[in-house]
Nucleic acid binder design. Structure first.
Lengths: 353, 353
DNA sequence: CTGTTAGCGCTTTCAC
DNA sequence: GTGAAAGCGCTAACAG
């Protein structure tokens, strides 16, 4: 019973301690614990090594392993904010795929929102094998890769404009938000709406520019429709203020409000109700994202579901493909409309132009 | 111009490469870049080292640094889910304090919710200096520290029951949720409510047990009041179902619903409205947390604001204190009621007992 | 003031 | 089938 001698009591046991306890060499321990002992180490030896490791509560020192291996099997996921459950989904999806390949994911919520991000190497405190950036501005992400000269990291952009100087080490995966917007407009048109205002998030990012364009295109394609746009800060209050402006504007009132985000839609519903208008009786409202907020509201929101987990999963797959120099699969994810209580036919037929 | 020889083109430059480029030794590079060269290295030399590092795009290899230093200046923050913006606040607060002390924070969303967590060492892929666990069950967190024998990590529990076997390496920081619940009940009582139902989250965790007890105590202290309790799954639908049960129960109806969470309160509002009851005209509703959801609803929610960032910040401070063997400050954070539109005096005076 | 040296804990040839 | 030894990139003693 001299096993107390194996480690200087209180310190973390090392593989050397395990080796001593099991009466073998450090190399054998590494082989066994690394699972590469097929036909190199005797079964009996392997068992005793595992027992010793167990008894000592041995955990490999990852810093040492990473140093030796020259990689960390870790990806950094950069997101603009944690206040939105959408990014929780992205993380979950990415982490799942990563785990299947023995990778880990470290989350880095950029302190600057979607703007320029601080150096993640100072924050994540790990050496990284690659970066996944979700819903970030292209410029913001440039800094993340480090000076382009000295070993730039593989980068996957999610829900963003493709990088201007996309090299071989870059990939992009996006939701088909343009199609989502098209589905919203078609839904509203088929309900009979002709006068529709787009409550547009006043945020300069790819995803919102695409929504703007898709809205204009879908409305423009149908004669006899009236499209308008109202910018809104990306908050409940911002949506409320914008919807109020849209609904009190002189001239015939819009019968439907298409909002760039569920948050904005929540504000729009409040505005409508405060103006004595009922949703969806007097005005229909749609959102985007399908966060849990969409069903917390009353009436529940008709909205476009963006599969966040799927996006994260595909992002991680793309990063793995990049690392292994494999070809990438189709980077556009289909989305679909979820029809709920906040949309209905307009109360009166739209007046002829 | 033979500077191209400094690194084997394509590979990450090391401190050795920088040393060669600057014509000094590796040690000097380390000193200069580590900021510890005061009076040890000549100004001229320091400048040329920095220039060389810049030119090569040199980044220190963190794995090597960590290995050498035996620590990573990194804390792991374990949270039950990313779907709740509360934890975003906790992270932000913790990260801010960490940064002020040269620490980083890595987020680990436990895949099992508040239940037992998987080994974070396999996921975060970093060696860690300590763990902060927010709103996790005590048992769930035990596994995180690794086998208690082999070098247990310092641990700070946030928003949780104190650990049974709290050693010197453990601390706890909590919101004063009991006081928050007391404030809710007092608010309702002073409005004239006497028949109040607690819509209680059916989750076995410290924070909800405290709310239950505080509600019962606050109601029990005032004669002539009627307290009831209705368990609810922690979702909008769960809250809706529970509120519906509470409001359709035979006998005099409760005039106020005290919900354990804003999510539950959202469901309660839906239930009331579906029963033809107005909020707050016929029934008052309160929440807990003050998430952005609270102001997205209409009417806005009277709720208890829990300062999440402050909690995270204090948690990180506590961890730092633990690491430096310093004494800890008061671990209970004050909370306060935010009165909004979802509460009002009951429409008819409560019937005498 | 600057260089040499040792070693953090691990994996991986290469001998035996 | 197992052990000895080298070395990943960095920092901190200690010499010069």
């Amino acid at each position: 019973m001299r096993s107390t001698r194996t480690a200087p009591r209180g310190a973390r046991p090392t593989s050397k301690d395990v080796a001593r306890a099991a009466g073998v060499s450090q190399a054998t321990v590494s082989l066994v614990l690394g699972g590469k002992w097929q036909g190199r180490v005797a079964e009996r030896t392997a068992v005793s090594v595992r027992e010793a490791a167990q008894a000592l509560g041995y955990r490999p020192n990852l810093a040492a392993r990473n140093l030796r291996l020259g990689g960390t099997r870790t990806a950094l996921l950069v997101v603009p904010a944690l206040t939105n459950e959408f990014f929780g989904g992205v993380y979950t999806g990415a982490a799942r795929v990563a785990a299947e390949h023995g990778f880990g994911v470290v989350l880095y919520p950029s302190p600057e929102g979607i703007g320029p991000a601080r150096d993640p190497f100072d924050s994540a405190r790990a050496t990284l094998d690659g970066v996944i950036a979700s819903s970030m501005a292209a410029e913001a992400v440039e800094a993340l890769r480090g000076p382009a000269g000295g070993g730039a990291l593989p980068l996957v952009m999610l829900d963003s404009a493709p990088l201007p100087d996309a090299g071989e080490l870059t990939a992009a995966v996006n939701h088909d938000v343009a199609d989502g917007m098209r589905q919203v407009v078609e839904h509203l048109l088929s309900l009979g709406h002709r006068r529709i205002t787009h409550v547009a998030a006043a945020v300069d990012s790819w995803t919102f520019r695409v929504r703007e364009d898709a809205f204009a295109a879908a409305m423009g394609a149908v004669p006899g429709t009236h499209a308008a746009s109202e910018p809104a800060a990306l908050t409940v209050m911002g949506g409320q203020a914008a919807a109020e402006r849209a609904l009190t504007r002189p001239g015939p009132r819009a019968t439907a409000l298409v909002c760039d985000d569920d948050i904005l839609a929540a504000g729009a519903c409040k505005a409508a109700r405060r103006l004595g208008l009922s949703v969806p009786g007097d005005v229909s409202v749609t959102g985007f994202d399908d966060l849990s907020l969409a069903t917390a509201l009353d009436p529940e929101l008709t909205t476009v579901r963006l599969p966040a987990q799927e996006l994260g999963a595909r992002g991680m797959s793309a990063l793995l493909a990049l690392l292994e120099a494999r070809p990438l699969d189709e980077p556009r994810l289909p989305v679909h409309l979820v029809s709920r209580g906040s949309t209905a036919p307009p109360s009166a037929p739209a007046p002829p132009d």
